[in-house]
């Protein structure tokens, strides 16, 4: 029935070759990434509970499943982010090619938002920040002196590492700016994720339209609260 020039339609290659299929891949991987970002913010808020809480949490997390849990988690998240970026690059290139000539007088958009227009840009800023953040607090490459500190129990002193870092205004500005970019990404994408899966439907539409901005605001406030509280002197060593 289908014309011979049409691409493969079914299976994984069919999915990634189709615009809707690649969007589904982006929505599902995005769902995993958003889940990670939210729990990461929530557990890190233990910074406010002091060194014992945060260091014990970090120590226990790294010990789960004999130390394998974090590596399985990292591999899974890496796979998701690679797939997410592949689909994002593909679709963004396709969308640009779909309108080779712009309107001379410009389009007067009625409903879209800055967040929706700059998804690729905020995604790229998020990716760059992710690399910096992992080198900073996971790898200890950025500030090695704060990284190799143990607490009185002989555990990695995560609390002291973070608090010492956030005394540096340059680091705080980097974290705040990156989190603003992430918040823009989330504000459109979490709602868009539901739409891509066909779930922003019927009477749920207005409610789901609010989920993206709500998640983005919560993640933004939670994350920057930590950096800002340190530099404002609310948390000190």
């Amino acid at each position: 029935m289908s014309a011979p020039s049409q691409p493969a339609q079914r299976g994984i290659s069919g999915l990634m070759n189709s615009t809707i299929g690649a969007k589904i891949a982006m929505a599902l991987t995005g769902f995993v990434l958003v889940g990670f970002v939210v729990q990461h913010m929530v557990f890190n808020l233990q910074l406010f509970a002091g060194p014992e809480a945060l260091n014990a949490y970090a120590y226990n997390l790294k010990g789960l499943l004999g130390g394998n849990f974090v590596w399985m988690g990292r591999a899974f998240l890496l796979a998701c982010i690679v797939l997410h970026i592949m689909a994002a690059m593909r679709l963004s290139a396709r969308n640009r090619a779909a309108r080779p000539n712009r309107y001379a007088a410009g389009l007067k958009t009625q409903t879209t938002s800055y967040a929706a227009k700059f998804m690729l840009g905020t995604g790229i800023v998020t990716l760059l920040f992710l690399v910096y953040h992992i080198l900073h607090f996971t790898g200890g490459v950025i500030e090695p002196d704060n990284f190799h500190i143990l607490d009185s129990e002989g555990r990695h002193d995560v609390w002291r590492m973070v608090v010492t870092s956030f005394k540096n205004p340059v680091v705080v500005v980097t974290y705040v700016v990156a989190n603003i970019a992430l918040a823009f990404h989330l504000s459109h994408s979490v709602t868009s994720m539901f739409a891509t899966l066909g779930l922003q439907s019927g009477s749920y539409r207005p409610l789901i339209a609010k989920i993206g901005p709500a998640v983005a605001t919560i993640v933004l406030l939670g994350n920057i609260a930590m950096a800002v509280s340190v530099i404002a002197g609310l948390i000190h060593i």
Binding site: A3, S18, I20, A22, K23, L91, L107, Q110
Partner: peptide, 19 residues
Amino acid sequence: NMVAAMDTEGFGACTNHGE
């Protein structure tokens, strides 16, 4: 088939702008 045909024609993908 209609989604494959729409993609073959070179239309873009939906990013839920709502325009």
